[in-house]
């Protein structure tokens, strides 16, 4: 139990270091990258609460992020702008304009409610069936966002969100989400869910209600994804449904899997590592294209290298960088071992 506090302190320390470090550097590009990193952190840690504890791969997470982003957008775009930004919006909603903080919770709540309603029957599925249905769920959410013009402006870009997300806000939300994920992991539901991840038959034989446990985790994950979506929406201020689809899904899953899905530490480590790798690769790609080296343009270097990195991690270290112990647990253990030796 004590090591969970150590883990929380270390992870929040890392988040603070990123926030303060980029603030000190004072370069706008770094500020942008770091804020993006912290928002990704919210999404990846959110995904960890379901995927890490249940052991089920979920593709639908980004769909709930989109839901949150649009919910917050509809609730916060100033009413005088709504006529332009969302011409088809329902009349009664045109006058609604609430504070971004409230909208953040509303975004999480709506994503959670939608997840609760549609996912209950899916939670009985395991293995391939559950992966395929979660993928289908992503496609459904994407299609709805693309076609529900009244709420999302259809496939066109939605603009006019107030820019309320900055580095400190992202850092605070990310810290809270990390604590929530750690608390959930050590909760009754979290422990039994992890037991079911390791052995469904044995967990059921102990009396664990596995679909119920998975359902709770899925709702929590959707809640966090919704909040992450709202956070991102108020950072980027204009977006279209295609921002919530395969490329982003692949990116957050890569982050989680490379870091280690079973631990919150892994989710944080993976997000940081992949964000920096992603930016470095994009920079390299840009530099290569600028020098017009070789015959043509270099395209897709970033994606290919990340995909190869994921394959390599799966082969060398299938559990990711932090496969089963949180950082606080690792540190308290080594210290105890040293004390025993001494």
């Amino acid at each position: 139990m004590k090591h969970s506090y150590v883990t929380a302190l270390i992870l929040i320390g890392v988040i603070a270091a990123i926030a303060i470090g980029s603030q000190l550097l004072g370069i706008r590009l770094y500020d942008r990258i770091s804020t993006n990193l912290l928002i990704s952190l919210v999404l990846v840690v959110g995904l960890q609460t379901f995927m890490g504890n249940s052991g089920l791969l979920s593709f639908a997470h980004i769909g709930f992020m989109g839901l949150g982003a649009y919910t917050s957008a509809v609730l916060t775009i100033p009413s005088q702008m709504k006529g332009m930004a969302l011409p088809d919006l329902y009349g009664f909603m045109k006058v609604v304009e609430i504070s971004p903080l409230l909208a953040l919770f509303a975004a999480g709540a709506l994503a959670a409610v939608v997840a609760a309603v549609i996912s209950y029957p899916l939670m009985r599925l395991s293995d391939a069936a559950s992966v395929i249905t979660s993928f289908a769920l992503l496609v459904v959410l994407y299609t709805v966002m693309n076609n529900w013009s009244a709420f999302t402006n259809g496939p066109r870009t939605l603009f006019g969100l107030p820019k309320t997300t900055d580095m400190p806000v992202a850092a605070i939300v990310a810290s809270i989400v990390v604590v929530v994920a750690l608390v959930f992991k050590e909760s009754r539901t979290g422990k039994l869910l992890r037991a079911s991840r390791e052995d469904e038959v044995a967990a059921a034989a102990l009396g664990a209600d596995i679909p119920q446990l998975r359902w709770r985790a899925f709702i929590l994950a959707a809640f966090i994804a919704g909040i992450g979506g709202a956070l991102w929406g108020h950072f980027i201020t204009s977006f279209a449904p295609k921002a919530f689809y395969l490329k982003e899904t692949f990116l957050i899953i890569t982050m989680l899997v490379i870091g280690g899905a079973n631990t919150v530490t892994g989710a944080v480590a993976g997000t940081i590592l992949i964000t920096f790798a992603y930016e470095a690769l994009r920079g390299t790609e840009g530099a290569l294209n600028a020098t017009s080296f070789g015959a043509g343009q270099v395209v897709g270097l970033t994606e290919i290298v990340l995909a190869l990195a994921m394959i390599a991690v799966m082969i060398v270290r299938p559990g990711g960088l932090f496969p089963n112990r949180e950082i606080g647990h690792i540190l308290t253990r080594t210290r105890r071992k040293k004390e025993i030796v001494a």
């Binding site: 422990k191 039994l192 992890r194 037991a195 390791e198 052995d199 044995a202 102990l206």
Partner: peptide
């Protein structure tokens, strides 16, 4: 439950 500690293995049964 292979990647859980011995303590957690036993604890899970009581919690369930």
């Amino acid at each position: 439950f292979n990647t859980m500690t011995v303590f957690e293995n036993v604890e899970a049964a009581a919690l369930a």
